[in-house]
């Protein structure tokens, strides 16, 4: 048991059952003729039935790629390392044919942009019916009945009529609900949601989030949410993992991480976000830009932007260590070594 585990310190009853999702030291590299980018650099986590993990991070931090690796939904140029096991099945070593049988039924995914993720030339009903028939091999009328149930499940008003609607005939919120219905059509045990509310307006966002949380509890799915919206994370997640440059830099229960962030990046993230009781105060942005993944330095990836960086930060990437009970952070400050405390600040050293 390494410190990289998300649930190293989680409660005893959950630890007794085997995790549904077990990701060990996952790495993803995109290699082609003129590029070689390491997008995910050693991510490990576990997820049990009914748990919600939220991957937080800015654009390009590897959160979407991490999530898509769970169903190997990546371009051919991607090279995956480490191991991913879902329900005891080895996802990374699985032949492509078997992969298509688990996609949709074991692991399913909700896309960010419901307009482009639904096929424009088929009705909502046809798309759900096809997916259900493809996996469960039932008759067309049974599949249609199931599609109707699903639309009712995702609370689409006058569901029977919406079955025959084309995606462009629905509003954004309804379209995303249809997308959720499609994702749930074959009773997945793991649901992946890639910024499911980003394309929606604020009032619809909260409706869809509440619906997702409700469905997730009702159906007991393990869910992974990818978002850069801290509000979304608070709303749905049990656990949060903050990603930076393809690594988890802070993990823990949602309340702990958002209320008592330990990693300087998470601290900066919280400071630069609008939340209650802030009227009149100026937000503090994190200086600089995300690192170029093509040329990562050996040290802490966040060090160039970190206000607390000291010379030892640049020598080696710190491990994910326990910063508080149930909460880990990838920062040298919390490590066992005393090099950080001993070193002076940059200003003093230079």
């Amino acid at each position: 048991m390494t410190n990289d585990q998300l649930h190293g310190a989680s409660s005893g009853d959950a630890a007794t059952s085997a995790p549904l999702v077990d990701v060990r030291d996952l790495s993803v590299r995109f290699v082609s003729r003129d590029m070689d980018v390491s997008v995910v650099n050693g991510v490990s986590f576990e997820l049990r039935e009914g748990e919600v993990l939220c991957l937080l991070g800015e654009s390009g931090s590897g959160k979407s790629v991490t999530m898509r690796s769970l169903m190997r939904l990546l371009p051919h140029t991607a090279q995956l390392g480490g191991s991913v096991s879902i329900g005891g099945l080895d996802i990374l070593g699985m032949p492509a044919r078997q992969l298509s049988t688990i996609r949709g039924s074991l692991v399913s995914m909700i896309f960010q942009e419901p307009m482009t993720a639904l096929d424009p030339v088929f009705t909502i009903g046809q798309q759900i019916v096809e997916t259900v028939r493809c996996h469960e091999g039932c008759s067309r009328s049974d599949a249609r009945r199931r599609a109707l149930e699903l639309l009712e499940l995702v609370q689409i008003p006058s569901a029977a009529r919406r079955l025959d609607a084309y995606p462009h005939e629905l509003s954004g919120g309804l379209r995303q609900r249809a997308m959720i219905a499609l994702a749930l059509s074959c009773r997945p045990r793991v649901l992946l949601a890639d910024e499911p509310t980003t394309a929606l307006d604020a009032t619809v966002q909260i409706q869809v989030l509440l619906l997702l949380r409700e469905l997730q509890r009702e159906l007991g799915m393990a869910t992974i949410f990818v978002t850069h919206d801290l509000g979304v994370a608070c709303e749905v997640a049990d656990h949060v993992a903050v990603m930076y440059a393809g690594r988890f830099i802070e993990t823990g229960a949602v309340g702990d991480v958002l209320n008592r962030p330990h990693h300087p990046y998470t601290v900066g993230l919280m400071r630069s976000t609008v939340h209650g009781g802030q009227r009149g105060t100026t937000l503090e942005p994190i200086p600089g830009a995300p690192p170029d993944l093509r040329s990562l330095s050996t040290g802490c990836a966040f060090a160039p932007r970190c206000g607390e960086a000291r010379p030892p930060c640049l020598t080696a990437m710190p491990e994910l260590v326990e910063a508080a009970p149930g909460q880990t952070a990838r920062c040298i400050k919390y490590g066992a070594a005393t090099t950080y405390a001993a070193a002076g600040t940059f200003q003093a050293a230079v």
Binding site: S100, I102, M109, F111, C134, M179
Partner: peptide, 17 residues
């Protein structure tokens, strides 16, 4: 390259399908 092709793949559709 459209999302719905990837979405179809995510629901387990085979290449031929």
């Amino acid at each position: 390259t459209q999302d719905f092709i990837e979405a179809a793949r995510a629901t387990g559709a085979s290449g031929a399908r």
